[in-house]
Design a protein around this nucleic acid. Structure first.
Lengths: 336, 336
DNA sequence: GAAGGCAGTTTGATCGTTCAAACGATCTAG
DNA sequence: CTAGATCGTTTGAACGATCAAACTGCCTTC
């Protein structure tokens, strides 16, 4: 393996100076077209690629975004996060950015990691996921002035009009509202909601979509509760089905609960009772259960837009002005 | 934000030279304990962290491993890959390594990306996934002498005794063999296998586990085929169940197929027909289907061991000697 | 025709770290 | 008592890029 060529090698081969080569790469418009082409040709011939570390050292930019990978708190579920990370990688790459992962088990642990990465100059910005009310991470990041976006709204007093920081999220209420309207139209007016115990921002938001859609349609239905487990959801749905013979459908806060509800319906002799889930996991797909698809690709696009502007290739976070600091992605109901 | 301290700042504050500070960090054993402690104290006080880019520039090592994130070929399924990446991140971090993602849509595209990352000095090694026979990526990497491991065996003539490159994989045959033995013991001798069409290395390997376990037990059973889709698997299993009334169980090559088989069994009035899957996805968990768990954490550990040695903290790939160039992880049957 | 502006290019300095070699002090052997 | 080895430390150079300022022609302008 021959030693890779440097900017100097390119310069001498093209009969120009270092800086001109650098300009061809970074600010081509200032170089005379003739010179530019010649240098470009030499770059191709030699197979020159700028050395990332040298560039980072000089510019004090790493062109790298860090993202954490350990869903320690309820937060975003596996598949969605996975697709989000993937989309982020792809779109970041188109803007000349890299994605670096880091692992941590607790919020404090995560703060320590971010600290290392930022002061070590390894990352320019962070994407955090699974935020919760009073999250120490956001406080820490704000205090240090480190650019970041969260996947998940801040759940503060008014995160739209007076946002604490940049955030991207999926409009859970819109998702369950769409599911509710769909069931109202195709099945009947008695649509139940199977949700998590109250208090999780995400779950409450999704419940709101159901209740608003019901009210708008002049319908009303029962609210059932279960932890995020198939077995428990099945039990909850089963007892509702026996006590209340004429349910027309169940909107569920997650795919796990939807599967539980579906199994209960099958067992109760109503295999065609329409049920909807949330996240569109492959489990829902396998069982032919309708589900709300989060569109993580759009979430990723939103995150980058907030961090880097519509088309920028450097981190330059949008200022957190009212109504301007977030991207709320409208999910899509996959009907099965 | 005050400018972060450099090695120079630490040196003057501790009354020593740059190099001594560097030694305290990188080769503490050569520094006199007294001096070492003093320097360490100053490091803590100032909150000094080495600047990654400067270090990389000088040492010509990035301490970063690249991994691709786009399963364009059958390869590893979502969840497993996800857990693998996560485990890799965690374990790499313990060895002072970072994980950087890159996206690509085709093998050629992936080669171009790796090229950029390697010659730009961004990564020291690569982990590739979803390898197939005659994979252009492995050829390219070998030719360039770039350190890499594949998650997935090379599927060459003899990848154990005469390996083309380092690889880690899950012992698929061992997994299905365990599942088969379990069903033989608990259900009966007539155990069918529901697999993919022949020709995929992974699928054939898993089939071998079933057939060897059957032979060893003196039993025999039918082999069914389906693409990796729930609906198709359901149809295949359904026709087998009607034509052959006394099946005792079905070992499936994947969770998708297992779900299809399970649904067929339920429809055929045999809801308790034991079925096993592969990958232990949350779909299988939700439906209470036994499945073979891949243990991606151990795969990750194996990958790092091959690349960096048992405890090393720099990339120094093991030479590909007979029987020494791979780690084959024994999966575990999760009984439900 | 001298002064000034402008476009395109070059030069020297710099980012923060580690390498390689040199250094001084103390100890050991002959 | 001196040569050589050993230990812990310091010094200068280098890694490869970009920044900021200086420079060179050439064209305007008064």
């Amino acid at each position: 393996m021959a030693k890779p060529p440097t900017v100097e090698d390119v310069a001498t081969a093209a009969g120009v100076s270092r800086q001109t080569v650098s300009n061809v790469i970074n600010t081509p418009e200032v170089v005379r077209p003739e010179t530019r082409d010649r240098v470009r040709r030499v770059i191709d011939e030699l197979g020159y690629r700028p050395h990332a570390a040298a560039r980072r050292l000089r510019t004090r930019r790493s062109s790298t975004i860090g993202i954490h990978l350990d869903p320690y708190a309820g937060g975003i579920s596996g598949v969605v996060l996975d697709r989000f990370v993937h989309a982020l990688t792809e779109q970041a790459s188109e803007r000349g950015m890299r994605i670096q992962l880091y692992a941590a088990r607790t919020p404090d642990d995560e703060i320590a990691r971010m600290q290392e990465l930022v002061t070590g100059g390894e990352i320019d910005a962070v994407v955090i996921t699974g935020t919760f009310h009073g999250d120490p991470r956001t406080r820490w990041l704000l205090q240090r002035g480190i650019p970041f976006v969260s996947f998940g709204r801040p759940w503060g007093a008014d995160d739209v009009a007076d946002p604490a920081h940049l955030w991207v999220d999926v409009d859970g209420a819109a998702g369950t509202a769409a599911a509710t309207r769909h069931l109202l139209e195709t099945a009947g007016p008695r649509i139940a909601f199977l949700g998590w115990p109250r208090g999780s921002g995400t779950g409450d938001d999704r419940e709101r979509g159901w209740s608003e859609a019901m009210t708008a349609a002049g319908a009303s239905g029962v609210r059932l509760t279960s932890e995020d487990s198939v077995a428990q959801a099945r039990a909850a749905a089963a007892s509702a089905l026996t006590s209340d013979g004429d349910l027309d459908g169940i909107v569920c806060v997650s795919d796990s609960l939807a599967i539980g509800a579906h199994l209960a319906a099958v067992a109760a002799g109503r295999p065609d009772l329409p049920v909807t889930g949330f996240d569109n996991t492959n489990a829902a797909e396998a069982l032919d259960i309708s589900s709300v698809e989060q569109l993580p690709e759009q979430v990723a696009a939103g995150a980058l837009e907030l961090l880097m502007g519509a088309t920028g290739s450097v981190v330059a976070p949008r200022r957190t002005a009212a109504g301007e600091a977030h991207v709320l992605v409208e999910p899509r109901l996959i009907v099965r």
